[in-house]
Design a protein around this nucleic acid. Structure first.
Lengths: 342, 342
DNA sequence: TGGCACTACGAAAACGTTTTCATTAATGAA
DNA sequence: TTCATTAATGAAAACGTTTTCGTAGTGCCA
């Protein structure tokens, strides 16, 4: 590895001069600076991030904390898409990305926070994880720059998909097609679910509709099996809903299954809507009507805010950023209104 | 940040002693060692990876080089699953994972190789990328420990999904169900495609079948649209195949579409098989018959081999590791044999 | 000519480790 | 008691940077 010392020797200057020349300091003569830069390029010099980080306490490396559980972080379409976008934005700003885990180091399991300190990460983005564990709380309460996704902490920047508006849009759409008997199979209890559920009820209320208790069932996110069983329960009701909301696109497939098993059709016999707008949703028959979350924007915004927090903390507003999604009109919701009219 | 110096001061020993005690050297008295370790834990000491890396030239950080193209790396189910498994195995061995990109540093765009040197990565795994670009070749030809996935370089360890056996299994299965008119819409030209295509022809040959030219069409991986159009061409043939192989599960959906648009049914009118075995494939109607690639094993093996290459290079065999997949029997292939018998 | 303000550069310390080698203390043998 | 051996510890250099501060050199003005 060619170091500044080598360049200094070759140019007959000091290491300090090389450092300044390469970093564009103004107190090095133009001629000498250009000579040094030329030699550096010619010798194939590259800085050593460890040495630099050691001295400056800046690593230009961001941590991402995703669920440690096997097969729920990277293989989760929604979060994978966010991560992808986050990565693109961060890299464009000169930052690298490292996964934050609870590795072993020095014969001891490190907590997330300890891991970040160990690696000298400049900041962390947290997503898709149980935000209530002590390890996550330790990290969130630390002095490290942190941005959370789809979860809000006091005094921390949060990038949140606008579930309230998203759900309202879906309800408005479904109602506009004449549905009044609308059920909701929702996901696990958490803040996202709470937002969607209350928005669901409120939006219905504005349309003068109240969903009976037996129309509100609990499943789990990305769990097609459970959602299928809940769907079966709904189908067996004497007063069956005309439209069913599912936790997400993936579990909506379970609902499709249940309908088919019962010898019925989507949307002729019953309508189904999803949530997320992952590519798969538009590969189903019929295409799923769903709410596409703006993963690209969420990831980009998260990176921008985190970097802003790192580089210009004083001028960075600590706030909750709502990112709106977009309704995707598939063919899984029947138009009851036009049926009546015709 | 509490450093070894602080511990040394508190224990009244030298920094060298602290370092050795913490790293379990045998030439520190048991009593003193334990005392130092206790104080370190009490003071919340954690090593500084930058300082350590600077001194030892070992970062315990692995690079992963995935496609830089937006929406084709992380959001690609197959590679996301491999990465997930790689991450789990690497972290269990005390390694962190950093994305390798072509970031800007020191006013210059770094190549992949330069980036690895800059970060002092101990090794890199390369996957899902155009292996023929100069930047990738530079990396592969460098002295860095490298493991490639689904691509073979001379003198480099490669972890490769066994496409030859996988395709053979699929063909054998389909033939065992009585199919003889079998088409293959294959993906872009690359080594994976070549393996599958030649295995397809050879397996058919063993069954005494030769696929006519018009049964071999070219589409692209993960491209439902194009695959749909190819499927339409096949459906319009006077001598239509009874079974069609698609590039992968995702594009198989396009084939499903084409069949439906033509007013036909899968598998009654035409059979379809996919490749990959991603979760989505089992959410289709009917469930797709496909070959599930063992992503968990591929990722795990890649991590194991890479770490072995780093830690014990002399005893590490440079070889191509074939990972077998598993046939997933969905409902998308019609049993022509039993139809005849019954 | 002396004084002053710049400009351009270098010496050296520091960041937190690891590791070599020397040194001291303790132990055992004679 | 003395010498040799082993065990335990520390001093110091080194890794590759950044950054502070000092110092020559230069030009300018009075």
């Amino acid at each position: 590895m060619v170091s500044m010392k080598d360049i200094a020797a070759k140019c007959g200057v000091s290491v300090a001069t090389v450092s300044k020349a390469l970093n564009g300091y103004s107190d090095i003569g133009k001629k000498k600076r250009e000579e040094i830069q030329a030699v550096a390029k010619e010798m194939g010099y590259f800085p050593n991030s460890s040495a630099r980080a050691l001295k400056t306490n800046r690593s230009y490396d961001l941590g991402i904390l995703f669920s440690d559980n096997l097969h729920s972080g990277l293989t989760h379409d929604y979060f994978a898409a966010i991560l992808d976008s986050f990565k693109v934005t961060a890299e464009a700003s000169g930052y690298d990305i490292t996964f934050t885990s609870m590795n072993m180091v020095a014969n001891r399991r490190m907590s997330y926070y300890e891991h970040c300190r160990y690696r000298g990460l400049d900041g962390v983005v947290i997503a898709n994880i149980d935000f209530t564990t002590p390890e996550v709380l330790e990290l969130v309460r630390s002095s490290l720059p942190v941005v959370t996704i789809d979860f809000t902490f006091d005094g921390r920047i949060a990038i949140v998909s606008d579930n309230v508006k998203g759900m309202k849009d879906l309800v408005d759409y479904v109602c506009s097609l004449g549905h009044t008997k609308i059920a909701y199979i929702h996901g696990d209890e958490n803040s996202v679910t709470r937002d969607r559920l209350s928005s669901f009820h409120r939006a219905l209320y504005y349309h003068g509709i109240a969903a009976p208790d037996e129309y509100i069932l609990k499943s789990r996110y990305r769990d097609g099996e459970t959602t299928m069983r809940r769907m079966e329960e709904l189908l067996s009701l004497t007063d069956r809903p005309t439209c069913v909301f599912t936790p997400d696109d993936f579990s909506a497939v379970g609902a499709y299954h249940a309908v088919q098993e019962a010898g019925l059709r989507v949307p002729e016999d019953i309508s189904i809507v999803g949530y997320d707008g992952i590519p798969m949703s538009q590969a189903l028959f019929p295409k799923l009507t769903t709410l596409r979350q703006d993963t690209k924007q969420i990831g980009k915004k998260a990176a921008q805010e985190l970097i802003s927090l790192i580089e210009t903390p004083k001028t960075t507003l600590i706030e909750k950023c709502l990112i709106e999604g977009e309704l995707v009109e598939g063919g899984s919701v029947m138009n009851l209104a036009s049926t009546l009219v015709t």
